[in-house]
Nucleic acid binder design. Structure first.
Lengths: 210, 210
DNA sequence: CGGAAACTACACCGTTCAGTGTAGTTGCAT
DNA sequence: ATGCAACTACACTGAACGGTGTAGTTTCCG
């Protein structure tokens, strides 16, 4: 939300007005969902006339898809690509886990996820985009990494995609399952980070080479 | 959806009309969410006049809360209480995991979860109910069980609630994260069940007593 | 049969909303 | 200064929706 323009690189540099609209739409759509957010509210929140909104986006649906698509793509950042994969297995896993937990415990990203999930039935493409750019991408990259580790004999043989999925579940699940439903989580950021090491060590123990 | 009356035990035996309304509301609310579902649609789907709907439920909000509350309570069934906890650790875990995966891969329950998550911001109580009657309840029951196992020296010492949360994440996460966003999951029911044993064995290896 | 309760059909009210039409204003480039 | 494009303010349309009012019909029980 803070860095709208870098979320929409394909649109080139945004007009000031355009930026205001996108920013307002991000805020309202993630806070209230598609239906409850009206175009008048967007215009008001953006300090812009409704006509201007419609001069940049031809319909509410277009605005929603554009904005959500951009945020979904932005959800992947920072991605595992930005992780230093050259370290030893354990520190790579810790770093990956921190990335995941950081996202899952971020209230803004939680709101984004809730809106995406709630609108999946009406806007399946947005859900797909989110998955592809976010958790799905990371799952694939982790799986690639695990495959290498297995070849090098640093992890026991197993389906690397399944292992990656389980790693994600093990690390994110405890927080995500709860926060998605009960609004906010009991666990503080510090507690969350503290549990990461336990999770990583459990994972390592289970996947140690024979 | 198929067994509406056993989901609303507190309302006593339902009128035929009432059953039709509740059934229609369950279907539409889970398929389309709160806003998109209109009271006219509910009445039509229930083959009942709109006036009759309002003679049983005083407002759309009441109907939604009643129906969703009932379904959330129903989500907990069958609960871990129905599990045979007398078996050995591994078979208890397998049975629990089957329970979890069965729910997470059920399209009807997926739709319910999506609606609950999507409406959490507007109806926090429903989210709370879902958590308390569903995953939260199971987490507590698993934690109690793990506590016992630790006392008996069958599992290594650790925070039992965290372990329960990780077990849930490890087992449900791989499917849930994907299906929530991308609509349906690549994994077949058989694949899902096959992965359960791997997950349980990983968990057991990580939590083996020292 | 008779009468009350449940139910229907349908018109109706007030509001909200997506989207348009328009006349007028601002700001900027030549 | 002139002209043009972006922008605003605001009224407006047509449709949908939540909810109500009412007159008439069905159902069922004594």
């Amino acid at each position: 939300m803070a860095h709208v323009e870098q979320i929409f690189p394909e649109r080139g540099p945004l007009t000031e007005k355009e930026r205001q609209i996108v920013e307002a739409a991000c805020k309202l759509f993630t806070e209230q969902g598609y239906e409850v957010t009206s175009m008048d509210k967007v215009a008001a929140e953006a300090n812009v006339s409704k006509r201007t909104v419609y001069s940049y986006f031809e319909s509410k649906e277009h605005l929603f898809c554009t904005v959500m698509g951009g945020m979904c793509a932005g959800f992947g950042e920072p991605s595992p690509n930005d992780i230093d994969f050259s370290g030893d297995l354990r520190s790579v896993l810790i770093e990956s886990a921190r990335l995941v937990v950081g996202k899952v415990t971020d209230p803004d990203k939680q709101r984004l996820m809730r809106t995406v999930i709630g609108e999946v039935e009406q806007f399946p493409l947005i859900g797909q985009t989110f998955w592809n750019e976010g958790p799905g991408k990371m799952r694939n990259e982790l799986a690639d990494y695990f495959r290498q580790m297995q070849v090098q004999g640093l992890m026991k043989k197993s389906d690397p995609v399944l292992s990656a999925a389980q790693f994600q579940g093990l690390v994110a699940g405890p927080f995500m399952i709860q926060t998605m439903f009960s609004g906010s989580c009991d666990w503080s950021q510090e507690q969350a980070l503290a549990t990461i090491e336990a999770a990583v060590d459990d994972f390592l123990k289970a996947h140690a080479p024979d």
